[in-house]
Every structure is written in structure tokens, then in C-alpha cells.
């Protein structure tokens, strides 16, 4: 190891402002350069265009565009339903992950595989299928309707669609952590006289909490922006079941580019903030894991 760092010493002696730690591995410049170019071309420049367009509105124009009652209501709907869906996924995702890791039952492999379905199934297909299922003459809807529960064309419908979309995130982040949990700690807890429930609360749950939070946050972040699966099932009533992405589309179709850009920019900032938070969570998770 010492040899290696000595060998690469000349490269790293750029000064204390050196951008990276030394390494003998080649290709840093090439891959980072390519990454940055591609990232800029595909993501950063177009997004900068969006922000520039919004900046053209001026602060007051921007503010008045995103604080109309209708926009605020759409934000409430989007964030509220995404939050509920993420929480549902937190509970059931944990349950699914637990069952998949700890128990064996027939067909477990198939169940494990099918968890990823929402990643792979096109959102529009999911939206149409869910609407057909939950409308009053659908397989599930016809069964819920007599009980007075309406799902399709209400905010509950949005929650159903967003739960579908976010399902794999919690399972797939919790699963590996649960798998790696050392049995020794649980055994220790048991030998100290803890009940199974106490063991879960005091030993297992704290260990998987960061992963659970990361997964939930990911599900939430994905849900807020979701469009394809929601529009079919939502009902799209302003103030009740109109989500932000739909409102952006509506603004565009009214030729209100300024309004659409303003809302889109705000959403973009929210997405970015959420991702930063998630990455910090993940860093926390890694440090917990290592320590």
C-alpha cells in the first residue's frame, strides 16, 4: 500500500486544492470527464434552461404563479397522497421484506421476483389496469362500492396508484440489510431474557431503520412526480384530486408557459432537496452499518 501511494505521489502533488485523493487506478479523468459531459448535455443544460425560463418571470412573477389557490391545492394533493402512499409502503414493504428474508414458503422465489414489477411495468399500463380494477364495475371496485368505499376517481385512487409505483423501493432497500443482520445480537438479546417483540423493537428495528427511511423517502420522491399511472385513476378534480404534474400539463395546454415553468422549477427544487436528504440518509446508513 505504501509503495502504491508513493508511486502515484507525483500526480497528487497538485497542492492542497487537489480535487481527489491519490490512486493508482487509471481512467479517472476520462470517466469523470465523460460523466460530466453526458450529465451536462442530457440533464443539466436542459434543466438549466427550465430554471432560466422561470428566472425570466422575476421573483414576484414566480411567486404569484406558484401560490395561486389551485397550485397550492395541487401541491397539497401531490404531497399528501405521496406521503400516505409512502407510509403504506413503509409498513407493507417492511412486512414483505421480513417475510421474504425470514420465512420460507412455497412460491417465495416468484414472490421475490414480482416485487420488482412496478419498476418494469409501464406506468400507463398500470394506470389503465388499476382504473379498470377499482372503478365501480371493476373486480375490486364492484366489491368495495356497496360498502361505500370509492377508490377510482378519488384521492384514494391516487394513493393506490402511488402505492403501486413505490412498492419495490422499501422492499429492495430493507431486504439486504435484514439479510445481513447478524443473528448473534438477537441471540444475545434473547439470552438476556428479552421477548421476541422486545428483540424486534430494540435490536432489529433500530438496525433497519435507516434503510426503511431511505426506502420510504425514495418511494415518496418517485410518487410526487408520477404522472402516467395517476391521471387515469385520479378523477383530476381541481383542488381535490389534481396532482402537480397534471397541473403543469394543463398550464402548457392553456399556452401558459410561464406558469408551467414556474411550477416545474419549484418541483425540480423540491426533488433535488429530497434527493440530497436521501443521499445523506444513505451516508448515515453506511456509517451505521460500518460502525
Amino acid at each position: 500500500m505504501t509503495d502504491i501511494s508513493l508511486r502515484s505521489a507525483p500526480q497528487m502533488r497538485v497542492g492542497r486544492w487537489s480535487l481527489r485523493k491519490p490512486s493508482v487506478l487509471p481512467g479517472f479523468g476520462l470517466t469523470l470527464g465523460f460523466t460530466l459531459c453526458y450529465l451536462s448535455l442530457i440533464v443539466l443544460i436542459p434543466l438549466a434552461g427550465l430554471i432560466l425560463a422561470a428566472a425570466g418571470l422575476g421573483w414576484s412573477g414566480f411567486w404569484s404563479a406558484v401560490t395561486t389557490p389551485r397550485v397550492l391545492a395541487a401541491f397539497r394533493v401531490s404531497f399528501g397522497t405521496s406521503m400516505i402512499a409512502a407510509l403504506i409502503n413503509a409498513v407493507f414493504g417492511l412486512m414483505v421484506a421480513w417475510v421474504l428474508v425470514r420465512y420460507s414458503f412455497p412460491g417465495k422465489k416468484i414472490v421475490d421476483a414480482i416485487v420488482d414489477l412496478p419498476f418494469a411495468l409501464p406506468t400507463a399500463v398500470a394506470g389503465i389496469a388499476l382504473t379498470a380494477l377499482y372503478s365501480r364495475n371493476g373486480w375490486i371496485g364492484s366489491w368495495l362500492e356497496p360498502m361505500g368505499i370509492k377508490v377510482a376517481f378519488t384521492p384514494i385512487g391516487i394513493i393506490v396508484a402511488l402505492t403501486f409505483i413505490g412498492l419495490p423501493f422499501v422492499v429492495r432497500t430493507v431486504q439486504p440489510v435484514l439479510q445481513d443482520l447478524a443473528p448473534e445480537e438477537e441471540e444475545a438479546a434473547v439470552s438476556l431474557g428479552a421477548t421476541r417483540w422486545q428483540t424486534f423493537c430494540r435490536v432489529i428495528f433500530p438496525a433497519i431503520l435507516p434503510a426503511l427511511m431511505t426506502g420510504t423517502a425514495l418511494a415518496f420522491a418517485r410518487a410526487v412526480g408520477e404522472f402516467g399511472s395517476v391521471i387515469f385513476i385520479a378523477g383530476n378534480m381541481p383542488g381535490i384530486s389534481e396532482i402537480i404534474p397534471l397541473l403543469i400539463i394543463i398550464k402548457l395546454e392553456q399556452f401558459d408557459y410561464a406558469g408551467a415553468t414556474a411550477i416545474a422549477t419549484l418541483m425540480l427544487m423540491v426533488s433535488f432537496a429530497m434527493l440530497l436528504a436521501i443521499n445523506m440518509l444513505q451516508a448515515w446508513m453506511r456509517s451505521r452499518h460500518a460502525g
Binding site: 376517481f153 391521471i231 378523477g235 383530476n236 378534480m237 381541481p238 397534471l246 400539463i249 394543463i250
Partner: peptide
């Protein structure tokens, strides 16, 4: 009153 009776607004 009419629009109060509208349960869904498709696009």
C-alpha cells in the same frame, strides 16, 4: 350547481 355534481374531470 352543475359543476358541484361533477365527480370527475377528465382531460
Amino acid at each position: 350547481q352543475i359543476f358541484k355534481n361533477v365527480p370527475v374531470l377528465d382531460t
